[in-house]
Write a protein that binds this DNA or RNA. Structure first.
Lengths: 161, 161
DNA sequence: TGCTAGTTGAAAAACTTTTTCAATTAGAAT
DNA sequence: ATTCTAATTGAAAAAGTTTTTCAACTAGCA
């Protein structure tokens, strides 16, 4: 598994004359192994366990690189902070559980009709979109139907700043 | 016009036992008069011309308040920065021109079918969404069809940070 | 006119993200 | 294996935005 990550990534990086370093491996492995989105700080903390030397700056740089090459995706939050999540195949958006942080991916094309209709109505050439959806996942919904008791919170509730 | 802004706002604020102060008037007037989204820093700069004492902290606090009560809306950018724009009637999203910053509003209900379909597919109770669309508006498109020459740029090109 | 809760501004703090730069290292060539 | 070189790293500092603190101030009501 770690091998898959590494070999797939090595090839991808080679095409761009980029190197597969231990820090980069550590970071991608953390993200690939996570079951939900992670902040740069959290990624740093986790990756340090495997590679204690790792600096936060490298995490940021690596996340930029991985995002650019499509290995991970940025998740935007309304407070302006970002989290990162491994990329599935060809998907582009996430529906994140506001309680446990679990994320479902959905396809870009679900948004296509809306964009097409708006382009027609407004005359804009729409080329960038950012969509984030949040809500309670089925598990969290059934565990606390009133939204009061929160049984397993795996995501920092508030400012992950 | 300024009167309309003030009187409408005074009533709204009174309901919440909030005061209509000079700083708040100045800030809302700036946003209402603008033809496109403004960053807190830009709002601060402009509002200072009318009310030189104004501190940036007050701008942030006022923007939170105005957003909460629905007088303005936050526009999210992928770099994590925010801009603010006056709220139209019942609209909820914006399509922002990446060249000149002009913004079109479109209705929340345009997004409803997508959300309904995702709720059905995933079982999530979706209660928060954030959608930002960007592209070239018709004017900017026709002025520089190749996207090379940019004739009137009224928005800071890059990091408004 | 006075009272009081709400508001303000300045300074400092809190954070996230970026820049700089000397030291290090992966990967290709030898 | 060894060498070479461009890419990469980490530490520190800088750059930004946004929040917190707190004493002074003020809008709105009695």
């Amino acid at each position: 598994m770690a091998t898959l990550v590494s070999s797939g990534m090595r090839d991808g990086l080679r095409e761009h004359r980029r190197k597969l370093t231990r820090p980069r491996q550590a970071i991608l492995e953390i993200i690939a192994a996570a079951d939900h989105h992670l902040t740069p700080a959290e990624i740093h903390k986790r990756a340090r366990k495997k590679y204690p030397h790792l600096g936060l700056v490298t995490v940021y740089r690596t996340l930029d690189l991985l995002t650019e090459y499509g290995y991970v995706q940025r998740v935007h939050f309304s407070d302006g902070c970002h989290s990162y999540i491994a990329t599935g195949q060809g998907h582009a958006h996430h529906l994140v559980c506001s309680n446990c942080g679990r994320a479902e991916e959905f396809e870009d094309c679900d948004l296509a009709p809306l964009i097409a209709s708006l382009q027609r109505k407004t005359g804009y050439e729409i080329n960038v979109h950012m969509l984030e959806l949040m809500g309670r996942c089925p598990d969290c919904s059934s565990r606390s139907p009133r939204g009061v008791t929160q049984i397993r919170r795996t995501v920092p509730p508030r400012n992950h700043k």
